[in-house]
Amino acid sequence: MPRKQYQERLEELREDVLYMSEIVAERLRMGMDALEAKDEELAQRVIDEDAEVNQLYLDLEQDCVDLLALQQPVAGDLRFIAASFKIITDLERIGDLATNLGGYTLQAERDVFPDVDVQRIGEATLEMLDDAMTAYAEEDADACYAVAEADDAVDALCEDASSAVVRELLEREGVDAEDVDELMTDVSRLLLTVRDLERVGDHAVNIAARTLYMVENDDELIY
């Protein structure tokens, strides 16, 4: 394949990865909206449309394999293809976490801990994802470090939320024995929601880490 055509295929890959990220971010936003409004119809839509994200992942995975097979890529191109492959893997997993939010919405019937601001955590992780993908699009090494730094704030928000749940449980009085199981189910679901949003932040850091490696051959953020 002529070099110019190969470079065009590489740019198409970048555009397709960015498109996948837009779809995944939309699903995550939908999951957050469904959770906040207890919108079962929207939650089911998030779950049903996960198949689209999975198909995008499989298509892009094949594109990466084809690009590696078509022509022996030089070092920079090889890092780009490898980074793109790792990034679509993280995006697919974020899509799965969005689906989890849809499932939690279908299970939830009440707000047992209204003081826990899940939406704030979700907004922070969405911003991290957007910043990480912008870094990938613009090959911005400094932005990669900024995403990694932002993860510390998200981790702190998640820790505060989990601590608030435990603290409120300890302070509660007069819970009937028959209500304990239902309460613990609600607690478990809320803690899983917080954990999944924290994992979205982790995947955003992974994207930034792979982008940094792609741009500067620097594996400092990879863990």
Rank of each mutant, 00 (worst) to 15 (best):
Q119E: 07
T99H: 02
R27W: 10
V180E: 13
V215C: 04
C158N: 10
V180Y: 08
T89H: 12
L97Q: 07
A153R: 07
E11D: 13
D181M: 09
E216K: 15
D152R: 03
L70F: 06
G76F: 03
M184I: 13
E12L: 08
A98R: 09
E149D: 14
G201S: 13
Y223N: 13
L170H: 09
E127S: 14
T185D: 09
L42K: 07
V166L: 15
Y57M: 02
L42I: 03
C144A: 11
A161E: 07
Y57N: 11
A132Q: 08
V53A: 03
L157I: 01
R195H: 14
R93W: 09
D111M: 05
S188R: 03
E36V: 05
L170Q: 15
Y223L: 04
V200W: 08
L97M: 14
G122S: 05
Q72D: 03
A156W: 07
E22P: 08
Q119M: 15
N100W: 01
N54P: 06
T211A: 12
A69S: 15
A82K: 02
D77K: 00
A141D: 14
V187L: 05
L170P: 06
G122T: 00
L13H: 12
E12S: 04
E127R: 15
A208D: 06
E11R: 05
Q62A: 06
D131W: 10
A124E: 03
